[in-house]
């Protein structure tokens, strides 16, 4: 009993979860700096359209990336205000704009599987893998890939 608990502890990972459209994503908790309500933004003219703007996070200037556009999903309808999922990166903090914030989940490693072959390519290159949870699938976001967005005009 005791040994088994130990095993699961080492094998478990914690994810901050969120929704973009009907997709359920997770980012490892250690990568997440904080979660914020929608903030007023400064638009950046000429920037690629997936960059929503700049926010002032306690004196730090943080770029906000719209996950809908990043994943090439349908744009958010007006009135729907996104949430900020602020993640750490080598280049300072970056905010990902998501539809809704979920719970922090602890998942067992043996539920893990690489992304299935038939996921659309745009999506597949941005997810590191899938956890099979009860009744739904948790897609693990590869934040490094997400932030690698090259400005395309």
């Amino acid at each position: 009993m005791k040994t088994q608990q130990l095993q699961t502890e080492t094998a478990n990972r914690q994810f901050s979860t969120f929704y973009v459209q009907d997709l359920f994503f997770g980012i490892e908790v250690l990568e997440v700096q904080e979660v914020l309500r929608y903030q007023e933004m400064t638009k950046v003219p000429l920037a690629p359209d997936l960059i929503e703007g700049l926010i002032n996070l306690r004196g730090q200037i943080v770029t906000a990336i719209d996950m809908r556009r990043r994943l090439r999903l349908e744009p958010r309808t007006t009135g729907e205000t996104p949430m900020n999922m602020v993640v750490r990166s080598d280049d300072g903090a970056v905010s990902l704009l998501v539809d809704e914030i979920g719970d922090v989940l602890e998942v067992r490693n043996d539920f893990y599987e690489p992304p299935p072959e038939n996921t659309p390519r745009e999506l597949r290159e941005m997810i590191a893998g899938v956890y099979k949870l009860d009744g739904k699938l948790l897609l693990v976001l590869d934040t490094e890939r997400v932030l690698q967005s090259q400005p395309v005009n």
Binding site: P45, L46, L147, P151
Partner: peptide, 17 residues
């Protein structure tokens, strides 16, 4: 400074609050 996602934009030297 601006984040690396915006580094390619030559029109800006940075940002301020």
């Amino acid at each position: 400074p601006l984040g690396k996602q915006l580094k390619g934009l030559t029109c800006y030297a940075g940002a301020t609050i």
